[in-house]
């Protein structure tokens, strides 16, 4: 945003990355030990976390405002679901199908969205997800329409671990996938490509003057973001064995944006923190009264915008910096 922090140095940061990955694995393990009865919910958190990470790639690193990210998530979910119904049972292959479909949808979305800026861009992204929603709804012979897509029966993972009733395999498969994706993305956002994207976010004109094509770079990021979101969707399809219309809805896009902002955009950790807190609180509060939950989300959003524009992760890093004494 408008603060003038220097971009993170691209020097050796791998020890911090290893610690970060270990922390995620530890948090996942703690979730497994503490909530052994709600593994399905934990897997849903991981699936949505991939969606929020993919949104962070566009909003946090490229400065593209989009409310249509669930189109990419849904593309992955439906592609994996349809492939599974038609006889492809290997879970790894299903995830790959989801990534591919999400990536293609991302390319398409990038090609449409990059034609406009500001409000028209936002509206295009909304129209895009609504169009996907209508297509999934109307092509009921392929997608199951409003009944949802049933009959997804993934085979055992690596031929060894069958998907059980308690969701153990799905949970560990999801956690492994999240760690892999997170490691890859930590590398990507600090690569020259990632730095170019951040440069475009700060000042597109200057990047163009340096002889770098803004549009091709952003389209690449759209494809990458689509692949990540598509993997999230495929994971959701495999874990719940059903794909519903809500996976391509405007509401899911808006919620993903809220999660990202809550955690803090422009940081991969922020995306994860926001997802866990949002879904955790939603799980508790919306069971009491869904309208209380909406009011609470609204108040949280307003508070974050007014008092912590860099999200909870920003608050945490600021606190750490203050504790160490300002550099």
């Amino acid at each position: 945003m408008s603060e003038t922090r220097p971009l993170a140095a691209s020097g050796r940061r791998w020890p911090r990355d290893v610690i970060g990955l270990a922390a995620i694995a530890l948090a996942g393990g703690a979730g497994y030990v503490l909530f052994p009865d709600s593994l399905a919910f934990l897997t849903r958190i991981i699936s949505i976390a991939l969606l929020v990470l993919s949104l962070d790639l566009l909003i946090g690193y490229c400065g593209i405002a989009t409310l249509g990210q669930s189109a990419l998530y849904g593309a992955g979910a439906y592609a994996a679901g349809i492939a599974a119904v038609n006889g492809l049972t290997d879970p790894v292959a299903l995830i790959a199908v989801g990534a591919l479909a999400g990536g293609v949808a991302g390319l398409l979305m990038g090609a449409v969205l990059l034609r406009a800026h500001g409000l028209p861009q936002l509206v295009l992204s909304i129209a895009f997800v609504q169009l996907f929603h209508e297509m999934a709804n109307k092509a009921a012979s392929i997608t199951g329409g409003s009944d949802g897509l049933y009959g997804i029966a993934p085979g055992p993972l690596f031929g060894l671990f069958a998907f059980d009733l308690y969701g153990k395999t799905a949970f560990f498969a999801g956690l492994g996938l999240l760690l892999l994706v997170f490691a890859a993305l930590s590398f990507v956002v600090r690569s020259p490509f990632g730095m170019t994207c951040r440069g475009i976010k700060e000042d597109p004109l200057r990047i163009r003057a340096m002889g770098i094509g803004v549009r091709p770079t952003l389209i690449k990021m759209f494809a990458l973001s689509g692949a990540v979101a598509g993997m999230g969707g495929a994971l959701g399809a495999i874990a719940t064995q059903v794909v519903g219309l809500d996976s391509v809805s405007f509401e899911l896009s808006a919620n993903a944006l809220v999660m990202l902002v809550l955690g803090g955009f422009g940081s991969l950790y922020g995306a994860l923190i926001g997802t866990v807190i949002f879904l955790g609180v939603e799980h508790e509060v919306s069971a009491i009264n869904p309208f209380h939950w909406m009011t609470l989300v609204g108040v949280m959003l307003i508070a974050v915008v007014l008092f912590a524009p860099r999200g909870l992760y920003g608050v945490m890093t600021d606190a750490v910096a203050r504790w160490r004494g300002r550099p």
């Binding site: 409310l67 909406m294 009011t295 989300v297 609204g298 949280m300």
Partner: peptide
């Protein structure tokens, strides 16, 4: 402020309006 901030703030206000009026 940048548009993203405005979008977030006004989505927050929308959620509050829905929650409170229905309450």
């Amino acid at each position: 402020q940048p548009q993203l901030i405005q979008v977030l703030m006004t989505i927050g206000i929308t959620f509050c309006i829905i929650g409170i009026t229905n309450y």
